[in-house]
């Protein structure tokens, strides 16, 4: 029998917006330093310009750092105690370069249960669309958080 989950279903269809987040040289350099990035398109402004970009290019998962700055509401899930970051999906749809201003719009995508050998887990999935200053969608990110019974 399917588990009847108790949570705030009124959150479906509500967009939570944040930004704009300026993409500065410092943001990209800190991101690439943390990950030990060596690709010159992401680390050397002159190399990026020589390759035809207007400035330094952001690595394809940069938007994940902005997701955490969207203030998401509590889904009031009545299941389990401790949660964990279970998974993440990024779709890179257009290059992000220094000088871009990125806005985020997040919504609750799904809440569902899965039962396996170790018991039941409930997953809460948020989806965020990122757009640049021209209204172009540059990335979509899904984050899943899981709770165990």
């Amino acid at each position: 029998m399917a588990l009847e989950l108790e949570y705030d279903r009124s959150l479906y269809g509500v967009e939570h917006k944040a930004g704009p987040f300026p993409v500065t040289l410092d943001v990209i350099k800190s991101f690439t330093m943390g990950t030990g990035e060596t690709n010159p398109i992401f680390t050397d402004e002159d190399a990026a310009k020589a390759a035809g970009y207007s400035s330094l290019v952001a690595p394809p998962t940069l938007c994940t750092i902005f997701v955490r700055q969207v203030k998401l509401p509590d889904v009031k899930l009545k299941f389990g105690k401790s949660g964990m970051h279970a998974g993440q999906k990024v779709q890179a749809l257009a290059p992000i370069v220094v000088g871009d201003e990125i806005t985020a719009s997040s919504h609750l995508k799904d809440v569902y249960a899965k039962t396996g050998r170790s018991g039941t887990m409930v997953f809460v999935v948020w989806e965020t669309t990122f757009s640049n200053q021209n209204g172009q969608v540059v990335a979509e990110v899904q984050e899943s958080f899981a709770r165990r019974e």
Binding site: P59, P60, Q88, P95
Partner: peptide, 23 residues
């Protein structure tokens, strides 16, 4: 971000279209 590096090092900065991970 570390796992994305595998693909951008191998096939270029705009090569990775979708990365879907389970931690």
């Amino acid at each position: 971000a570390l796992m994305a590096r595998l693909f951008t090092n191998w096939a270029g900065p705009e090569s990775l279209k979708d990365l879907d991970l389970v931690f």
